[in-house]
Design a protein around this nucleic acid. Sequence first.
DNA 1: ATGGCGGCTGAGAGCCGA
Length: 253
Amino acid sequence: MRIATWNVNGIRARQAQVEEWMARERPDVVCLQEIKVPSAQVPLPLGAMDDYWCYWHGERAYSGVALHVRKALSLQRPVCSHPGFDHENRIAAVEVGGVTVASVYVPNGGKDFPAKLRFLEAMVDYAAGLHAAGTALVMCGDLNVARSERDVHPRERKPAAIGQLPEERALFERLLAAGGLVDVGRAQDPANDQLFTWWAPWRNMRQRNIGWRLDYVLASEALAARAVSCTVSPEVGTSDHAPVLAEFQPLSS
DNA sequence: ATGGCGGCTGAGAGCCGA
């Protein structure tokens, strides 16, 4: 089971890159963020792929998320939803094989920081509810928080910067604790202090790997114990964010 | 400390990102 996430920063501008990447990586589930287009205007063939169930949850110009589920995983169209706390089309979820997968784009917070905190708090409650119900969850996406100091390159560390603030980091830890979730990227690569997924688009920050880790695959403990890898692909695409792909052994085996 | 630029809309200059 291969689950991938990518903030594409405009699906129309990134269409060919996403198609190429999906053809090469062949993920079973794909979570996209910042599609920046109304669901009805998603370009084909990405909008309705032969071998994936596609769920687009977007709006004009801004934000928006999507989910793709390989049809072989689920003969009938999976049940898709956007949880009640959604805001600006920032979360979509799908239930497949007893696992809930969510594609999430947390508000940056520069425009409305309290709204970011409210969204993160609602994510905590959502994950806690699924945890209490015994539903396995994989929460993927651009969480717009660098989890800890080591998730920001030393030269980008700014304690007062949005994305690095103590209250955001505390909410990140609450999300993991209340949801019974594991940060799969960190768990798979515990000693790596260069594990970045976003780079500022100037001064060759990406090539020099001076970045932030903002994109995550969080998985319920039982599922995370089945993870075999979680990799960032900094060379893929021209979004400010790189895709992240986690591979899991089947839960049942 | 600051920084630059692409994607989007609407058909300009401005918002947004983190």
